[in-house]
Amino acid sequence: MDSQKLVISPAPHVHGSNDTRRMMGDVLIALLPALLVSVLAYGLQALVVTAFSVACCVLVEWFIQKFMLKGASTIGDLSAMVTGVLLAFNLPANIHLGLVAIGAVVAIGIGKMTFGGLGKNPFNPALVARVFMLVAFPVAMTTFPEAAGAVTGATPLAMAKEALKAGVPVGEVMESVDLVAMSLGMKSGSMGEISVVALLIGFVWLLCRRVISWHIPVCVLGTMALISSVAWLASPEEFMSPIFHLCSGGAVLGAVYMATDYVSSPMTKKGMVIYAVGIGVITMLIRIWGAYPEGMSFAILIMNSVVPLIDKYVRPRRFGAVRNGK
């Protein structure tokens, strides 16, 4: 630029260090421990699926942006990469790569770009793809390879559900489940959901970097814990314990990484709490009484659709608002 010409712009003239790219980068970093665990559990296959999923998502976004929306490339903001990793984390490690590609097209193409790209999608793109695949390819999506150290190929949640349906008492079911091993990653499941500990390490990172606030994850997990505790205390013979619920399936992955997706979550802290409690309730309803063993993805998608309504009616606390009775 011509150094003689002064730049004129409205205030403020400085900007915080925060930008979309940095925040998405932080999410990717936060997902690394979980990726590591899944590689340890499932071998290189896990890495291949993740890398392929990321590549597909980025490619699809680039293609649509360039040839269909005819806009400037948006892959630099890394959001497509985050969607790619999250999608992979929702898949079994031994899934056919062709299905991954389909998932990527659904996630980015249908879940995100049809609405106009980043910031305009009402639903979490990775979850749109997951649910689509769960319905379209139920067998491929629920057949998990044996993780190193895990007992069987079925997820603990699915196992428990089947067993309870068959009338096996909870005590016996619990015996077959090693909670410590489960939380470390020695269980079967989607790639990303196997290690609660690794996911929580990422959560701490996100909190430290102020990428997300604690409200959504804590309220989702808290609600789930509360409902399962009530059920469990009322009838421990019939229902699984709250710790089992929190450590199994996509509870942590969903609460920390999927429900907190900026675009599809509410704008205010109060709204976030309502949204998160809703997710927790719906998840537990599906887990306890629904047909599917896991309800996290459905719960998040359902609450995603409520977000505009929440944003309309839940407003932030305003400075100097004249409160009733004061």
Binding site: M1, D2, K5, L6, V7, I8, S9, P10
Partner: peptide, 8 residues
């Protein structure tokens, strides 16, 4: 032009 506008 003797300066450059850089706002909205």
């Amino acid at each position: 032009r003797n300066n450059r506008f850089d706002g909205a």
